[in-house]
Design a protein around this nucleic acid. Sequence first.
DNA 1: AATTATTTTTAGGTTTGTCTAAATTATTAT
DNA 2: ATAATAATTTAGACAAACCTAAAAATAATT
Lengths: 221, 221
Amino acid sequence: MVNFSHAEENYLKTIYHLQQTTETVSTNDLAAALGTAPASITDMLKKLSKKGLVSYKAYYGCSLTTPGTDKAIGIIRRHRLWEYFLSQKLGFSWEEVHEVAEELEHVSNEKLILKLDEYLGFPRTDPHGDPIPDAKGKIVQQQQISLANLPEKKAAVVTQIGNQSPEVLEMLDEKNITIGTRIQVIKKYPFDESMEVKTDNRHQSHITRELSQNIFTKSSS
Amino acid sequence: MVNFSHAEENYLKTIYHLQQTTETVSTNDLAAALGTAPASITDMLKKLSKKGLVSYKAYYGCSLTTPGTDKAIGIIRRHRLWEYFLSQKLGFSWEEVHEVAEELEHVSNEKLILKLDEYLGFPRTDPHGDPIPDAKGKIVQQQQISLANLPEKKAAVVTQIGNQSPEVLEMLDEKNITIGTRIQVIKKYPFDESMEVKTDNRHQSHITRELSQNIFTKSSS
DNA sequence: AATTATTTTTAGGTTTGTCTAAATTATTAT
DNA sequence: ATAATAATTTAGACAAACCTAAAAATAATT
């Protein structure tokens, strides 16, 4: 078990997340996600490639190898366990935990994480509802459910927009709905399959069937 | 409030510790304590000096300024709170906590430390018996007590040897006593003021008055 | 006091992770 | 298909934190 730098860990983690939507990750997307210049990304990808953590071919983007994926899942496990700790034990709010966990996740002591996991009672999801990988690296992939199929009252978070046309995005913008917005169905109207929803900021909006079918969510705790 | 690198924090912390015994700290001592080449120490001291954290004059060694001391105490506070957490909440043993806390201490979120302190119930000492500075940076300096004056049964840790002559060191070596050894007085003999002590490794030794007066300890929890 | 030994600093290099600007490759549009 | 545009890589630099070897300053010894 070699040790990795913070930078390397952040790359692996970010590639993992980006791979949830695109099979292979482009240099520019990684650069945007990390807030780093594309040229720097190329440098690091070469390095990670030489270490066998990502497979990378010039101009074709990158993807994690099996060891790279394992490592990334380990980092995500640490991140989410700390988020849970901050929220449940220290009383941090939902929004605050991420930033602090970004630092804590790099403390790489195997026993620490095992003991922390045990201490927290082996939680299954972090405060945002994201699944926490277990000690073996098994991660329960949460299924996404369209707003149209989301039961009333169930707390959820917007994860994806099906149709990203300007027309759809305009409507979402008006209703203050974006990726990450917490959302809840207040009432469904069977007549036209439209619904009333409540979002983060206590906003309430009316959403048509057409729109609701294009808003994907995952459950949040 | 500026942010400091891990390296800078380690320098400040180490200078603080070394200053407990020598008013001003030499380049070589710092190098030895940090496991870094003396040349590198010089580089960093210039940098810390420019930042106003240490006062440094070439060839004369260094000492912390007031801001430097404050910062160092902050790092020690973090370190010891994490040690307490690891020991009390996660069930780490006395010997294991230091290494992990060395990493955790660099997570620099003010609120995290305040909340952690509160969560732990504002502990006064870490698992080694060292005092934990409070949120204002106030640190209760523990007084040292010679073994001769240590009450029976009281748990203590050897902190200093008064007379460091080869004759004394030879005896201590034979009895397996060094700085950091946990020690406890089992029985005192009023006749010659000698005593029976128990150390870490369940060793038991007989110690004369002369020797006991040269072994200084601090209480440990 | 002069020489020797030790400590500290300077000089010059290395690695990691970043940058900008220029060159190259891929993609898109005409 | 070719030109224009966008994405990516190469080249050359830089800061942080370290290193070794040589020079300089201080301390110790004769």
